[in-house]
Nucleic acid binder design. Structure first.
Lengths: 117, 117
DNA sequence: TAAACAATACAACAACAGTTGAAATGTGTC
DNA sequence: GACACATTTCAACTGTTGTTGTATTGTTTA
């Protein structure tokens, strides 16, 4: 991944509305949601939602698919994982032991999915 | 992690200069780097670097420590890992099988450190 | 074709971000 | 104390972002 693309991705995630939106789509993966439902769930105006959907789509973090007169949006989870790898892959200049210590210091294991009950 | 804090963290990473800076500190973990060295390595003016260091420190992504007349900066890697967990923890509403498929679709395993030779 | 609805596009505005250069603060050395 | 150097602060400017309201495009149903 190029730095420029990574910056675009982080920019896309650096608005409260967009972060809520993306996480909503992550929770609803892989089914996705149509724009109207998203607007209702997040209590955002249609116009404003469209603006943020466009930003996320431009970054590549979500995809859209026509569904009758609706548009269904889905989170592009592999790209999110690539971004995470971009951030972490050169950690400690390839000193795995040091990095493992950091991981233990983190409250949550990032790669393990939670139980959800 | 609260949404507001996560937004602050993504904002902190959504500038080319700051992303380069943070990744530089990640590569140089756990030793860190002093400000002058960072300025030289990234070819950024001292004033501008200070601005971005402050933004990253305010977000909590880096820490600073006095070292004689220098200031040494270090990446706060556990916080980065918490941010990653925040983004991924509710993926697919706790459907691990689905998420595993996504992870296989990603080129790099995010939680496994690369070989580096 | 027309009506009703889903979603986007556009203009306008306030608020904020990134960069620069000059001045100020603080630290170590003589 | 005086100097050299590392780093930060501040003012100023330019460009960008997020939101709102209205107009427009496109789809379904009749």
């Amino acid at each position: 991944m190029k730095t420029k693309h990574a910056v675009t991705l982080f920019e896309a995630l650096s608005s409260g509305t967009r972060l809520d939106l993306f996480r909503l789509l992550i929770r609803h993966a892989p089914a996705g949601l149509v724009a109207g439902d998203i607007a209702r769930l997040l209590n955002v105006s249609a116009s404003n939602l469209s603006f943020h959907l466009k930003a996320l789509a431009h970054a590549g973090l979500i995809t859209m698919e026509k569904e009758g007169k609706f548009l269904r949006y889905r989170a592009e989870i592999p790209l999110m994982l690539d971004l995470i790898a971009y951030l972490t892959s050169e950690c400690c200049s390839g000193n795995p032991a040091q990095c493992s210590n950091y991981r233990e210091a983190s409250r949550v294991e990032p790669a393990v999915l939670p139980d959800h009950g």
